[in-house]
Design a protein around this nucleic acid. Structure first.
Length: 355
DNA sequence: AACCCGGGGAC
DNA sequence: GTCCCAGGGTT
């Protein structure tokens, strides 16, 4: 779509389906829009609804905010979080009153010089409350544009951010910028949502690259995960004469909650403690191929050892321990890597092969 | 570029 | 529990 078609489609949708009844959309002026934009930074609309009205009732003008005790401002902010926002709010109010005679500068660059106002917030204030053709790139617009252009790369990357800003600028229309800005935020908040976007209702679905690829959820590309912490553990597979392996049931809460698993040891020497605990006599042990299991929050390197049990093992004394017969496996919940290791153990025990 | 700030909601 | 949200400032 051309930029004109793009913005027309967005504006038509806004006229029919956009939100027009939010508190900060009434009695629009730079002060109200500014306060709402600051409150909405990293904060959901439903939360801000509980604060905006109270704040405006108490401090209806930039002069009132500039003259208020800081404690009063922070009181009105209590529960919203990111309290630097509140302090910056009042700093900016004082600057606007003292340096700009109480009128916000009609200039994006001057707006970004004010504490707490970055490029996106400046664009929102300038377009919504002043009608200036200024782009925004908040989380909503970022998501809409990243999908529309199937933008690769994490938006925190300067190269990617630059591409997104360039498109934000390109699609911003020359007329009705106030409605366009509001429309793009609405689109991102109500249709082009992070998960389960409502593409069938979207005015941009015709040109949306991500939709054409059927890959809406891939965009924007999430922040790259930091390397996961690594842990290691030894897992002994104690095998009795019947070809059964000793397992225990993990506590119902926590990692692998309620699943059956192999014992975990820090060193191979601890195997003797385990044998004593169950009254077992061990013979030879043999290393199996190691494997790595990845959790959401760490990587676990597992060193499995196949250990032969020499003594009789009719019963296990402790509760939550059992001999898992590889030939006639009971139907139990097993941790994924344990299932893999049991299969390996079965191969070794039945064929004598080491893999 | 990495990190800090914060509370709440979706999943 | 994790991740994200109408981001910006500091180091």
């Amino acid at each position: 779509m051309s930029p004109e078609q793009f913005s027309s489609a967005v504006l038509d949708w806004y006229d029919r389906n956009g939100r027009h009844d939010l508190p900060w959309q009434q009695g629009i002026n730079p002060y109200r829009v500014w306060v709402s934009e600051i409150m909405l930074q990293q904060t959901q609309v439903s939360t801000v609804l509980n604060y905006f009205g109270r704040f405006m009732d108490a401090l209806p003008t930039v002069q009132a905010l500039a003259e208020a005790p800081e404690d009063e401002v922070l009181h009105l902010w209590t529960g919203l979080g990111y309290y630097t926002r509140a302090r910056n709010l009042q700093k900016t109010a004082k600057i606007v009153v003292e340096q700009y005679a109480g009128e916000f500068p009609r200039d994006v660059e001057k707006l970004t010089d004010l504490p707490g106002i970055g490029l996106s917030t400046a664009g929102a204030i300038a377009s919504i409350s002043m009608g200036l053709r200024a782009p925004i790139l908040d989380g909503n617009v970022k998501r809409v544009l990243a999908r529309y252009t199937a933008q690769e790369g994490y938006p925190g990357e300067p190269k990617v951010a630059k591409a997104l800003w360039a498109n934000a600028e390109r699609y911003t229309p020359h007329s009705r910028v106030n409605h366009y800005t509001q429309a793009m935020m609405d689109l991102g908040a109500t249709l082009c949502t992070r998960s389960k976007p409502s593409c069938l209702l979207c005015p941009l679905k015709v040109g949306c690259e991500a939709h054409m690829l059927g890959q809406e959820i891939r965009y924007p590309v999430p922040k790259p995960r930091k390397e996961l912490p690594r842990k290691r553990t030894l897992m002994p597979l104690l095998a009795n004469h019947e070809g059964a392996i000793l397992l225990y049931r993990r506590p119902s809460t926590g990692l692998w909650g309620g699943l059956w698993s192999l014992p975990e040891l820090d060193t191979l020497e601890q195997i003797d403690d385990l044998a004593d605990q169950h009254g077992l006599h061990l013979s030879g042990s043999q290393a199996l191929d190691g494997l790595t299991h990845t959790f959401s929050h760490f990587q676990l390197a597992i060193e499995p050892w196949l250990v032969r049990v020499d003594s009789a093992t009719e019963h296990v004394a402790e509760a939550d321990w059992l001999w898992y017969n590889l030939a006639t496996p009971p139907r139990l919940g097993l941790a994924a890597p344990v299932k893999k290791l049991l299969k390996r153990a079965a191969d070794v025990l039945l064929t004598g092969e080491s893999r």
